[in-house]
Amino acid sequence: MERPADFTLQAATDHPTVALSGDWTARSLGGAGVSLAESLDGLANFAVDLTDVRRLDTAGALAVVRAAGASFDLARIRGRPEALRLLAVVEQATREEPEARRPPRGFHEMTVRIGKGVVGFGHDVLDTMNFLGHLLVVVARSLFWLFVSPRRIRWPAVFSLIERAGLDAIPVVAVATFFIGAVVAYIGAGMLQQFGAEVFAVELIGISMMREFNIVITAVLLAGRSASSFAAELGAMKMNQEIDAMKVMGVDPFEALVFPRFAALLITIPLLTFVATLAGLLGGIVVTWSVLGLGPAFFLQRIVDNVGITHFWIALSKAPVMAGVIAGIGCRQGMDTGGDVESLGRRVTAAVVHAIFSIIMIDAVFAMIYKELDL
């Protein structure tokens, strides 16, 4: 049975003596170390008697060394040899200053940062593959329930996210693409007028807006609007341990949180692409009508005859990939949020940056593929 650490001090003699008793261990020390230090404060040439100490560990030895302070002298301590050796080791450890490691500089610092970046990139790739695999399993399961038992899908969450991520984004997408179409028309008309080919500004506007700008601008706006929102929402839930609570209750967070967001963007991004196409063409019509004198009827007829609908279907074929990337990146960053606000801020920023970078890269890959297919 453990006995609490205790001591008695005989300070009335010429050679004060403090006798320790009990167990001077981490579990039994309590406030004996502080009391010993207060009792020995101002005393010098005192002796320490450890013969009645049953057990002594590093915590008790450190308390004795700190209480003795500068007056610590192993020659004035009585006790078992193993106790004296432990005190000597602890006292020597307290006198040694930790060696400050010099931070790497120059080429060494560069190699360290490159190494950390490579390792971090590898961990991100593994985490991304894990997230993607889990998401694909949930999507396949949801598609199965869609045909077998549609009631098992969380339709209220899906429709709510469709409204927030899709319908509420129509004004900003329409305004942005309207002005982009107007800018493309204004610059194209100014350049083509030098060669007397201003009529081809219609083809320039039609191809650029129906093939590239409609889907790219829509995806970029959704990356800044929806990916950050998804990361912030899931990150806040992760900080409040709501996601852990869902796992404890047997609810799959991917099925309850990630899939509705994925489905919402998958449904709404074609609608937003169509709105962006109409707004961009309207901006081009306004500029060509006011600057070149080409009426709306002529503009639309030339779009139908020389541009066609193929470019719009090419842009629409990119929509599911863009939706999956935006929703996946936003949800993954949210699910990887730590327990502090700083981590949440970094994850939201990373969600937007990674989503925009991925959109531009995917669009470039599609452009090369359709170039090889002669589309």
Rank of each mutant, 00 (worst) to 15 (best):
S35V: 00
K238F: 07
K116D: 09
R80A: 15
L192K: 05
Q193G: 03
G106W: 07
A59E: 08
G115S: 08
L74A: 14
G308W: 00
G196P: 05
L161G: 03
A355Q: 03
N240K: 12
R85C: 07
M361I: 15
E372C: 01
V275C: 10
W289N: 11
G338H: 05
V137W: 13
R78W: 02
T58V: 13
A327F: 01
E255H: 09
G224W: 13
E233N: 12
L271E: 04
G188Q: 04
A19V: 09
A276V: 03
A256L: 08
E96M: 06
A61T: 02
D52S: 11
D244P: 05
F357K: 03
A323F: 02
R105A: 12
M209T: 14
G188L: 05
W155A: 10
R141S: 14
L278Y: 08
G295C: 07
L221M: 12
I153A: 10
F159N: 02
I180C: 01
V34E: 13
V287K: 05
F7P: 02
V251F: 15
A327N: 07
D363F: 07
L136E: 03
D168T: 09
D168H: 08
M361A: 15
A197M: 11
V139C: 10
I369H: 02
F195I: 10
G79Q: 08
Y370D: 03
A350T: 05
A223G: 15
V53S: 02
D168V: 04
E109K: 15
A367D: 06
V48R: 03
N130R: 08
R346Y: 01
I269Q: 11
G79D: 08
D336H: 11
